[in-house]
Design a protein around this nucleic acid. Structure first.
Lengths: 300, 300
DNA sequence: TTGATCGATACGCTTGGAGCATCGATTCCA
DNA sequence: TGGAATCGATGCTCCAAGCGTATCGATCAA
């Protein structure tokens, strides 16, 4: 039994006439008759009652043709599924992202992706920029949304937006009425930070800036998430250095002060394997880049 | 694209090895390689990434194989559906029945049929015995459950059970305390009946019996259903002659008296086209016969 | 009775799927 | 580092089988 036999049986069932069915199938009538007969022999079942004047379906024929239509539809779906998957219309894509990008960029990316590629299932995995690099190379994730990542031979990296760094201070901090400060002015304040082993490059940047400002930072406490970090600031345990977009997480007892130090910037970057060929990954990369730049960044 | 290609692609996807897949399919490895390649060319899509050391699925290949499995299952279902329909395990059967058989025989038939042929959809059509004959010959119904039908060349008829005829009389009728009466004793009572044009043979039998009893019947009222008929009796409009099984329809104000006249019997008959070949019809006929005789008839 | 219609059959051609032998690339191991 | 083993691809040949043309036989209408 081949798909050809199913096509033939369905055509005969629809025309109830071997000649017309053969025309529709662009084959000669004897070929059609032979193939249908062969199908019946293979099944061991009579599908059509034929006289030289009339063709009609047997109950078995009706049951078979019904199922055959479903089979042919499934075969057609198989073809479509393959083509769509190859073109990137259908499939699965995995996006790694840092927590600080989840606030602003990520929701826009998800919305745009769902609108443009409704058949592509988007998996989201929160992870640090450092974790993204090996997972990109292993194929664990297709695109990485991180911070301050430098391109390499294996990774293509673009900057999406450049944000100033802010100091998040408690509402009773002495500098709370200032709009802009310099890091050196925080000499008396301990820092609350994300864990050093999870975000080593953010730590390094803070250390470099501190040294440039002639400051020896005192680290009071670590927190795993930004929300917790801000709660610690609000509780008066110290100050935190965060990128501008974290401001979206408004907190009643936290004030944000812009840092004027040189290098007090953080870039949101998007990374993809260099020479990526998979359409779902290329599409996701394209949409992430577009979604980040399309709406104008908030005024600072 | 043929089912062969789908089988081949699925096998390669499962083995991820052309040699082993070819063994499993009982073909030579070069044939398998060529067919898979031909499938890819037909689809315009690469399904497998192959080196001389490793074979892996592309995303398009994974999508295709998933759909191909469903297609192959549908093809297998088509075969099964045809065989089952031909053997009578699956299909549709239509049973015509008279209202007076609906009370006792029909529920048993439906229950047994559902248990023995769960995949055969049983259609039930209430109709008179007279209507069953042409509909059997036209194929509108497969089996007819009627009364007092005589076999012909075209119809095979069996008797399922033989019931005495009863007179249904109102609760204040003068004969109400009798167990058995003769039709002649109803001379003073008008008759309520089913419509003459719907059940001509039942009418004829009543007329023949009346003549034999020296009775000139007076017809008071017609009703389309037994329930209505009994309601008319209960209301005192007259008496009705009904087969024994109608007694199952108990009615508070109706008494049943057995008729002692010769020929005061009615037979429940089952009819099927002579030489019927369709298994669903033959099965239904067999089950109707069995269901009617299996439980012992009620004592009268 | 005759002609038209329609599915089945006969026959020869051609396609294409299969097997065998072999190639080229890659990997493993000594 | 070189040789052997593994594995998919390719070239060649064979033949099964699908197809088309011509025709038959049965049925039905005029």
């Amino acid at each position: 039994m081949e798909l050809r036999h199913l096509h033939y049986a369905v055509a005969v069932a629809e025309e109830l006439h071997f000649g017309r069915a053969a025309d529709r199938l662009h084959v000669a009538q004897p070929s059609l008759s032979r193939q249908v007969r062969q199908l019946e022999h293979d099944l061991g079942v009579e599908l059509f009652k034929r006289t030289s004047r009339r063709v009609e379906l047997t109950p078995a024929g009706a049951a078979f043709v019904h199922a055959a239509r479903r089979t042919l539809a499934a075969a057609s779906d198989s073809r479509v599924a393959a083509v769509q998957a190859a073109s990137g219309v259908r499939g699965r894509a995995t996006l790694g992202f840092v927590a600080s990008a989840a606030v602003e960029v990520l929701p826009r990316v998800v919305a745009v992706h769902r609108a443009e590629r409704p058949l592509v299932q988007l998996s989201l995995r929160e992870m640090t920029t450092e974790e993204q690099v090996p997972q990109l190379l292993d194929g664990e994730i297709d695109v990485g949304l991180g911070r301050d990542l430098e391109p390499t031979d294996d990774l293509q990296v673009q900057t999406l937006q450049r944000e100033p760094l802010l100091a998040a201070v408690p509402h009773d901090h002495v500098l709370r009425h200032r709009r802009r400060i310099r890091l050196a002015e925080l000499e008396r304040s301990p820092f609350v930070t994300l864990p050093r082993d999870r975000v080593p490059r953010a730590w390094d940047k803070l250390l470099v800036m501190s040294r440039a400002a002639g400051l020896t930072p005192h680290f009071a406490q670590e927190a795993n998430q930004f929300v917790t970090l801000l709660a610690l600031v609000a509780a008066g345990l110290g100050v935190a250095i965060v990128p501008d977009s974290v401001r979206t997480l408004r907190h009643e007892h936290v004030h944000y002060l812009r840092l004027n130090d040189p290098g007090a910037w953080s870039e949101v970057t998007v990374a993809v394997r260099a020479g990526e060929t998979q359409p779902v990954a290329r599409d996701l990369h394209r949409l992430v880049s577009a979604a980040a730049t399309a709406p104008p960044p908030r005024a600072t």
